[in-house]
Design a protein around this nucleic acid. Structure first.
Lengths: 188, 188
DNA sequence: AAAGATATATAACGTGTGTTATCTATAGAA
DNA sequence: TTCTATAGATAACACACGTTATATATCTTT
């Protein structure tokens, strides 16, 4: 009986996702989405009870994108190293997403997600195979690697530094190596 | 002939500064300032042609606060180490300010300031006395120290990690020491 | 073909924001 | 004391945003 819908939930989320990718949540609003889809605001409020609900859906997509980046790293020959590179690459390719996920506290990520899975058990264990440290030592060492990696990623996301992917990989690899040497030397 | 002014530029900037300190620029607006000062919005637009002009003044104050933190570090017995600590302490004491200065690009900091003076000549030279490296080597090494320090500061500003000042100082001091050991060992 | 359900458009309301027009009160000059 | 310049209050306008009321168009069932 009803007319065939022209604008699905998926269309609206996808369109919103693209806006946020380019300009962040600050620029996402009903009229903007409507303009880009070539419709009025009605399809949006038909499919979502409020903008907040839509925002949450978009946030979920962003988090999925991040997870996909991280998972792709696990397939490579040196997963521990690759995860750091993936983290920074994500910050480079999707700076707005990185800022949303890791550089601000919002009502969006408050309860629904525990984003900092970077210090998960498996990461520690993967790190052990690279470093040869004990589990407890690797845990401590990993905090330092994580801080360093996060530092680069933040600088990349804000475009404070503009390194090529190769420069970043070299910087990260070299630095972690040096940190490990120093860590091993200093431990008692 | 005119009545004695009750609300000076300084009063308004000071009040705005406090609001931004607690809640960031997002929560700064004319009516909010007026309410806190106990006046109408008129004194604001009498003293400033626009909110943007006031925002810039507030931004300047924030930057001055940051510079004062950094300068205070230079007086200590180990200035190079202290500057890193001051940077993180600033992020801890004034997270909103830190986010404004170093974690986002705004129209405010676009032209008027070159904020990243952290890699200034004098910092490098101060670092040399700590590390004993050549000028060029110190320059390279400092990038790594800066990234690490910035990483901690970002995590502190967003309250992602909640370390005490002592924990942070130990983490930073130990890590830089280890990084230096590794750096020296790996250089050709 | 007629009817009902609903997707979309149009237009509006309410709120929060920057900004400004108008009025009033005041302090010093005449 | 009277006059003038202006600081401030009140109130309004313009605009952007979330949201909703109403009207219209369309598809499926009968």
């Amino acid at each position: 009986m009803p007319p065939i819908p022209k604008f699905s939930k998926k269309d609206i989320v996808q369109c919103s996702y693209e806006i946020v990718k380019k300009e962040g949540f600050a620029k996402l609003n009903a009229r903007r989405i409507a303009a880009e889809l070539g419709c009025s605001v009605q399809p949006i409020f038909h499919n979502f009870t409020s903008m907040e609900e839509l925002n949450k859906e978009v946030y979920k997509c962003i988090y999925q994108k991040y997870k996909a980046y991280m998972l792709s790293g696990k397939e490579k020959e040196n997963p521990y190293k690759q995860m750091g590179i993936s983290y920074i690459e994500f910050a480079s390719d999707y700076p707005e997403f990185f800022k949303i996920l890791f550089m601000q506290k919002t009502t969006l990520n408050a309860n629904d997600f525990v984003v900092n899975d970077a210090i998960g058990e498996d990461v520690i264990k993967t790190g052990q195979t690279l470093t040869g440290l004990s589990y407890e030592e690797q845990k401590k060492f990993h905090v330092k690697v994580w801080i360093f990696t996060h530092g680069i990623a933040c600088l990349v996301a804000t475009k404070t530094i503009q390194f090529t992917q190769e420069e970043i990989e070299e910087l990260l690899a070299k630095s972690v190596k040096e940190m490990l040497i120093g860590y091993i030397k200093e431990r008692k």
